[in-house]
């Protein structure tokens, strides 16, 4: 496909050259699961080294959209993606693009902490190893664990099973594991939904710290969390299809987080952020 930078979509928050620091440009994205039209017509642009939050009621397709950014949807046989997702101007769904190479650059942290049943060290070293890293892993492991704020807690038990850690530690380990391959983007799919408030606070602090190095997209159910950590927020909602009766996700509004929460442009957004529905 084309290698030129895509045309900018309307974006009031940009004051630099249009498209210069765009990581993702999404154009007319539709996702289908078999016959089910799960997400329709999403357009948005993700900025470099910002935290973008996707909020909305359940079933609104925000996780589905998130999984289009690193082609995780490819793993589901019946999933089909239409429209374009450009990553630094390159069409992610071009036939010549290998999803494995994409995922190496675009890391992901999942809803439930999913450490591998291996040692802490081996969990962090997994990505570099499969990626063909041949040098000193100790350095990478330490750096990643430090970045994830976990080093001091685990430095004396790197050889122990990761499954013995607390839930919050496990999720930070998953973040360390994801940044060990030095990705460009971190996708976080409700990373705190399985954690207690204290562990959630730690992860939020962590996100703010590592934002200087990574572009982060976070899906969250928790509006306060979106307001606390994100720079920009996308609000999705679900519409009921008249013919099939199925829920179909739709992007309603995408703007600075401040605007979304204090001065939403759409009444549905306002209803949601003020707690009247969802």
């Amino acid at each position: 496909m084309t290698m030129t930078q895509p045309a900018m979509t309307t974006d009031p928050a940009t004051d630099a050259v249009p498209g210069a620091n765009d990581v993702f440009t999404v154009d007319g994205l539709n996702v289908f699961y078999g016959d089910h039209h799960a997400v329709s017509e999403v357009d948005l642009t993700i900025k470099e080294r910002e935290i973008t939050a996707f909020i909305g009621p359940s079933g609104c397709g925000k996780s589905t959209v998130l999984r289009c950014f690193n082609r995780m949807n490819d793993l589901i046989d019946i999933a089909r993606v239409e429209g374009t997702v450009r990553y630094h101007g390159v069409d992610l769904y071009d036939e010549a693009v290998d999803p494995v190479a994409v995922r190496r650059r675009i890391g992901m942290v999942f809803q439930k902490p999913n450490p591998f049943p291996k040692s802490i060290y081996d969990n962090v070293a997994y990505g570099p190893r499969v990626g063909g890293h041949k040098g000193n892993l100790d350095e990478i492991v330490e750096r990643s664990l430090r970045d994830a704020g976990l080093w001091d807690e685990v430095k004396d038990r790197l050889g122990e099973s990761a499954l013995g850690m607390s839930g919050g530690q496990q999720q930070r380990l998953c973040i360390a594991r994801a940044i060990a391959v030095n990705p460009d983007v971190l996708l976080m799919d409700e990373p705190c939904s399985a954690l207690d408030p204290i562990a959630t606070g730690v992860i939020e602090e962590l996100m703010k710290e590592i934002k200087s190095e990574y572009t982060i997209i976070i899906v969250t159910h928790n509006m306060q969390q979106a307001a606390r950590v994100s720079d920009r927020t996308a609000f999705f909602t679900a519409e009921i299809d008249e013919h099939s009766g199925q829920r179909r996700g739709k992007l309603v509004e995408f703007d600075d987080t401040g605007s979304i929460f204090s001065n939403p442009g759409d009444e549905r957004t306002e209803a949601y952020v003020t707690g009247r529905f969802g």
């Binding site: 496909m1 290698m3 990553y87 630094h88 101007g89 390159v90 069409d91 992610l92 071009d94 010549a96 693009v97 290998d98 494995v100 190479a101 994409v102 650059r105 570099p128 990626g131 063909g132 890293h133 041949k134 040098g135 000193n136 892993l137 100790d138 350095e139 990478i140 391959v181 030095n182 990705p183 460009d184």
Partner: peptide
Amino acid sequence: DFGGPATGFERTEVHSVADLQLD
């Protein structure tokens, strides 16, 4: 032991589909 110099992963720029291929 995992000795030797660390090379680490460098982030490279993405310009075209050729940069998104598996070795």
